[in-house]
Amino acid sequence: MSNANVQAVARYQNDFLREVEERVEEGHMVKMCMQCGVCAGSCPFGPDWEHSPQKIFMMIRAGKRDEVLGSDSMFMCTSCYSCIVRCPRELPITHIMHGLANYAHRLGLAPKGQPTREFATLFWNNLVKKGRVNELTLTLGHYFTNGLVSGIKTALGMQRIGLGLFLAKRLNPMEIFGGHGVKDLKGFHAIVAKAKEIEDRKKGFTA
């Protein structure tokens, strides 16, 4: 069988849809989309992405696994919930987008170097570290994601803002040495680890 035929066999069959239903947050709602497009039109970053949510849902139903999981569209979501409140079928679109992004990320299929993918990862790791977000290390960490030189440039570019915030007592340079955090850090980490373990087990990720 030629490659094209292999693809044809899988098309519009429910394999990928089932995978999404089982392994993606709120994935069981993907099938309820009726392709009205209100989500696509509601997203503030619609013009910036390749696939609208409604189109992603159709792609899932059409079995386009690689295209969906390789799409950077999910990372454009700013969690503004405009799509959710307007969706006539009450699909939790924001969460599905997050779920797909998470799933693609975990599988390593998400676009490499996608800036929001990296920032979001950084954010989570940052918060997990101390139980609370350290705004300074988060910011600096982000600026240096693309390497030292580019990081210095960005950081310098944003220096004025940082300085302003510092003067307004809204950024504490001392945070770099520790800063806010939960006291029972051990317990916090245990919870996160356990939750991750349960979820991974359920979704079939093996560590």
Binding site: G37, V38, A40, G41, P47, Q54, K55
Partner: peptide, 11 residues
């Protein structure tokens, strides 16, 4: 009116 024509995705 703002939206997306879903036949092929046209904003």
């Amino acid at each position: 009116l703002h939206g997306v024509d879903t036949e092929g995705y046209h904003r």
